[in-house]
Amino acid sequence: MATGGRRGAAAAPLLVAVAALLLGAAGHLYPGEVCPGMDIRNNLTRLHELENCSVIEGHLQILLMFKTRPEDFRDLSFPKLIMITDYLLLFRVYGLESLKDLFPNLTVIRGSRLFFNYALVIFEMVHLKELGLYNLMNITRGSVRIEKNNELCYLATIDWSRILDSVEDNYIVLNKDDNEECGDICPGTAKGKTNCPATVINGQFVERCWTHSHCQKVCPTICKSHGCTAEGLCCHSECLGNCSQPDDPTKCVACRNFYLDGRCVETCPPPYYHFQDWRCVNFSFCQDLHHKCKNSRRQGCHQYVIHNNKCIPECPSGYTMNSSNLLCTPCLGPCPKVCHLLEGEKTIDSVTSAQELRGCTVINGSLIINIRGGNNLAAELEANLGLIEEISGYLKIRRSYALVSLSFFRKLRLIRGETLEIGNYSFYALDNQNLRQLWDWSKHNLTITQGKLFFHYNPKLCLSEIHKMEEVSGTKGRQERNDIALKTNGDQASCENELLKFSYIRTSFDKI
C-alpha cells in the first residue's frame, strides 16, 4: 500500500482533458527560462521544448504516446526543470519506465491550478516501474492521483506527508504495488545497510526511497516546507523545498512566496507586481503582455491589467481597466465587458449561442446573426445582446428569417469595421425574408467608422429604411451602385405612401 494514499474509496472516473512563447529569463536562482504550460502528445517531438525550461508557468501534460519505446527515452533528460506552477499529468506514455532521468531536479509542483483537485496525476502508464522524482520536495496545493499503472512499484516507500501538507485526498490505487509483488529495495538494503531515512506512518517504520538508488530526502521537522541542505541544516524561511546553503534567500532552489532578481522575498516591493503567484514583474512586463494579447485571437491570451499590486489576466467583477495605466478602477454604474472572439468572429444561430455573449459591452471581433427560429426570440436576444455598444469588426445579418427588427441591439452605437466582410463591408444584410426595420432612427444613433453597407434580398425592408441608415451611420456616399439592390429590397412591402385627393359631386333626387 502506498504510504499516505487512500484505498478502496469510491472515486469519480478520471477524465483526461485534452506555445513556446518565453516569458522571460528567471535569473540567477533558476538555471534556465520560464516556459508556458505545455500539452505534449502523440510523439516526442515537442518534448524537446523543455530543454531550457527551469519553470513551467502553467501545467505540463505528457500523454497518448503509443509508439514510443524505452530506448526512445534513454537520452532524454531535462535537468534544468525545477518547478511547475500548476500540475504534472502523465497518461498512456508507452515505453517510459521512470522519471528519474527525465526530470531529475523537479523540486516543486505548486498546484496553482489543479487537474480535478490533483497536482500530480500518473494514470495508465503501462510501462512505468517507478516514479523516480527523487528531488520532489513540495506539492504546495492539491493532491496526488496514481492509478492503474500495472508495473509501478516504489510507492509504499514514499512518505507523501513530507511532500504535501495533507495526504487525506491522495488516491493511489490499482498499481502493481497493490499486489505486494514489488519487493522494493532501498539503497544499501541488499548489503544489509540502512542508507535512507525511515519514518513512521500508520504504525509502520519504513525506509523512504524513490528507487533502488535514490533515497527520499527527509528534512528535520523544524525546517517545515522550506527544505534543508545535504547536511540537514534548514533553508531560509522564504525558500521552498530545498537550498544549497542554509538561511540564505539567494540560495533557495525555489521560493515559498515570490522570486525577485535572484532572491526569494515575502512580497513584491514597489515598483514590482505579483505575477502568477510566484514571481515579481515590473510595469513594462505587464504592459507588454497586455499589448501582445490586445489584437491576438490565441486562446488563453489575456490583456493583463494591474489590481491590488498584482498583474492579473482581467479586472475583477465591479472594476474596469483604465487604459492609460492598466489599473483596475471601480465602475460607475454597470461595468464594461470586452469579449474577445477566439477566431475573430462568432455566429449567433440560437439563443444558446447568444447567451455566451451575455453582459458583453464591447465585441472584439465580428458578429454573424443567422437565426431561423426560436421561442420568445426578441426578448431572449435583447437579454443577451442588448448591452453590446461596440463591435470592432463587422455585423452580418444573414438568412435570419425569424427577425423582424434589429432593435434587440438596443445599445449598439459603434461598428468600427477594423475587419470587413469580403474585404469591403462593415454591415452586411443578406436574404432576411421578414426583416422590416433596422432601428427606430428617431431614437437610435449608430456610427460606422469604416467599410460599406450591403443589402440584398431583404424583400420587406424598404429602401427608405436603408437610406436612413446611410445618413445616420455616416456611410452615405461610400456605397457603390450594386451594394444596395434596388429590386430585391422592399419588393414585397408597401414602401411608397402617396396622399390621394378626392373630389365629389353631391346629387339628390331633384338636383344634379
Rank of each mutant, 00 (worst) to 15 (best):
I82Q: 03
M83E: 08
K80V: 10
P79R: 06
G262M: 05
E130F: 11
C301I: 00
G232W: 08
T157E: 05
S225P: 10
D165K: 05
P316D: 13
Y87I: 01
R263I: 02
Y304M: 07
M83A: 02
M137Q: 08
T221E: 11
A230S: 09
I139Q: 01
F91H: 04
V108S: 10
D288W: 09
R256Y: 06
N150Q: 11
C35N: 00
S244L: 08
H59M: 13
D159V: 08
D72S: 03
N202T: 09
N105I: 01
H214F: 12
N282E: 07
F285P: 01
L164I: 07
M125D: 04
C234S: 03
R141E: 10
C252A: 00
A198S: 12
F66K: 05
E49A: 06
L60V: 08
P31F: 09
E180A: 07
L63F: 04
F205Q: 14
Q299V: 02
H212N: 10
E168I: 03
L164A: 10
Y87F: 06
L155P: 04
Q303T: 04
C234N: 01
N43G: 08
I201S: 04
K292C: 06
L102R: 01
P330E: 02
D165I: 09
C243I: 00
W160S: 01
I146K: 00
G132D: 03
L128F: 12
N322F: 14
C239V: 01
F275V: 07
I139M: 03
K148S: 09
R263S: 02
Y273T: 05
N195P: 11
E97Q: 12
D248N: 04
N135P: 03
H236F: 02
D178K: 10
N52G: 13
K67E: 06
E231K: 01
C255M: 01
P79W: 04
S77I: 10
I109M: 01
V173H: 12
P246G: 08
C335V: 04
S77V: 04
P249Y: 04
V108N: 10
H214L: 09
C235F: 00
C264L: 00
L76A: 15
F205G: 07
V206L: 03
S161W: 03
T267F: 02
C215L: 06
D247T: 06
N135L: 02
P330D: 12
M38L: 04
C196L: 11
L233C: 02
E231S: 09
C315F: 00
Y118R: 02
L89I: 05
L29R: 15
S98F: 02
I201R: 04
G227A: 09
V108L: 10
V108H: 13
G333L: 07
V200G: 02
Y272S: 13
N282C: 15
I163E: 00
F205T: 12
S323G: 14
T211M: 02
E147F: 14
P334M: 12
N43K: 10
D75N: 15
V281W: 00
S161Q: 15
D75R: 05
C35L: 00
T229I: 08
L99A: 06
V305M: 11
K67D: 06
I62V: 12
R41W: 10
E207S: 06
V200R: 11
N175D: 05
D288F: 15
H307S: 09
C186A: 07
L60T: 01
K67R: 12
C311F: 03
R208P: 09
R256K: 09
L106D: 00
I146N: 00
G232P: 05
N257S: 12
V206F: 14
N170H: 08
V281L: 04
G300A: 08
H48M: 13
S296P: 08
E314Q: 10
C315N: 00
D261L: 05
V108K: 01
N308S: 09
E57F: 04
K191C: 05
S98M: 02
S213Q: 06
L96A: 10
Y273A: 04
I122A: 12
T140Y: 07
W160M: 11
L88V: 11
G262C: 03
D86L: 00
F78E: 00
V206H: 04
P187T: 13
M65F: 09
I172H: 11
F116N: 10
L89R: 01
I84C: 02
G262L: 03
R297F: 12
E314F: 01
K310P: 02
K67V: 09
V173E: 12
F123Y: 15
C243E: 00
D247A: 12
K148Q: 11
C264T: 00
N282M: 11
K217I: 15
N308F: 11
F73S: 03
C301S: 06
I146Q: 03
S161V: 07
P70K: 08
C223F: 01
D248I: 02
P79C: 02
Q303N: 11
H28K: 06
L90P: 00
S161E: 14
S143L: 10
F285T: 05
F115I: 03
E97V: 11
N295Q: 09
E151G: 14
N325G: 15
N105Q: 11
P70M: 10
E97A: 09
H28D: 07
H302D: 08
S324T: 05
P36Q: 14
S112F: 08
H127V: 07
A198K: 05
P313Y: 04
N309L: 05
I122D: 00
Q303G: 12
F91N: 13
R263P: 01
V34M: 14
F78S: 02
Q245F: 11
T45F: 06
L164P: 01
Y30N: 12
P36H: 04
D86R: 03
R279K: 04
R279V: 04
P249E: 08
N202Y: 08
E168Y: 15
P271Y: 07
G300T: 12
Q287F: 14
C255H: 00
Q303P: 11
E57H: 12
C264M: 00
F66W: 04
N295E: 06
Y30P: 06
K100G: 07
T320N: 11
A119R: 00
N179D: 08
C268P: 00
G188M: 15
L131F: 04
H212Y: 11
P246R: 06
G132N: 05
P270A: 09
F283K: 15
D288H: 09
C243P: 00
R141Y: 07
F103Y: 02
R279Q: 12
E180R: 12
